[in-house]
């Protein structure tokens, strides 16, 4: 599937303030996706500093010259995708899989998550991960507005509801307690339902011999050709497409608009 993306994030600050953001908004080439064209533009800040981080993400550092009232970040491009049943194999990256067994504050498991994980244990890693995927899709309702970006896996699991970030965090926390490396993935999803956001997040976990596999517990499936993967990290904070620091300024508004369409449907 050929997917066109236009993703705009704007920050406004009143009074104007200095802005600095790390952007992980460039999709890598993967078994499941080929990037045909991609451009990252930033208005209101300079974003010439680029590097590849330990997880293989392309990072751009956007820093304003002195105080600014608005920063507009636009990521636009076309990606050719194919359905690999979520399997990515071993993408080029510096981190070793064992790093993805580390706990972070957002993904620390509690007794309930540990018990859930144990109940999903099967003969093989692959079967276990699918049991986690199905079990989590059943157990935790998709309910926007009930959690925030700082909600931990444990508290979302206790509430049995949340959004894609919470589903992914619980999945990651559970997989790690079973000794299976797991991490957080961000990206885009082509969807037919207008109300669902096109900006999306899910988990990746490692199965020996197969490599990294995507698992989307919010939708109860592995990523298909409708998914574009952007960045990965140990949790939502580390993989965030835009991670910023407030440097003064009384108020800051964040406005995100994403338009994703499959070109073959046009």
């Amino acid at each position: 599937m050929r997917i066109a993306v236009s993703h705009t994030t704007s920050y406004r600050s009143d009074p104007p303030s200095r802005a600095i953001q790390a952007l992980r908004l460039v999709p890598p080439g993967l078994r499941s996706q080929k990037v045909l064209a991609w451009e990252l533009r930033v208005e209101g800040a300079e974003a010439g500093l680029r590097y590849t981080d330990a997880f293989g993400n392309q990072v751009a550092l956007a820093a304003s010259h002195g105080p600014v009232a608005e920063v507009i970040i636009t990521a636009e491009g076309v990606v050719e995708t194919q359905d690999t049943a979520g399997v990515l194999g071993f993408p080029a990256e510096a981190v070793v899989p064992a790093v993805c067994l580390r706990e972070t504050p957002l993904t620390a498991p509690d007794a309930a998550i540990r018990a859930f994980a144990v109940s999903c244990r099967r003969e093989t890693a692959l079967a276990t991960l699918h049991a986690l995927l199905d079990g989590l899709h059943e157990a935790v309702a998709y309910q926007p507005g009930t959690t925030a970006s700082s909600t931990t896996a444990a508290s979302a699991f206790a509430a049995r509801q949340g959004v894609c970030q919470d589903h992914a965090h619980i999945f990651i926390a559970a997989a790690r307690t079973l000794g299976l490396p797991a991490r957080y993935a961000t990206g885009y999803l082509v969807t037919d339902q207008a109300q669902a956001p096109a900006h999306h997040a899910w988990a990746e976990a490692l199965a020996p011999d197969i490599g990294w596999i995507g698992f989307d517990p919010a939708n109860g499936q592995c990523p298909t050709e409708r998914y574009i993967r952007l960045a990965v990290g140990l949790d939502a904070l580390e993989a965030a497409p835009v991670r910023g620091v407030r440097l003064g300024g009384a108020a800051e508004w964040l406005d995100v608009r994403v338009a994703v369409q499959s070109q073959s449907q046009k």
Binding site: R50, Y51, V59, L61, A63, L247
Partner: peptide, 9 residues
């Protein structure tokens, strides 16, 4: 903020 990004670059 951004110091580590500069370092890695």
């Amino acid at each position: 903020p951004g110091l580590f990004d500069l370092y890695r670059a």
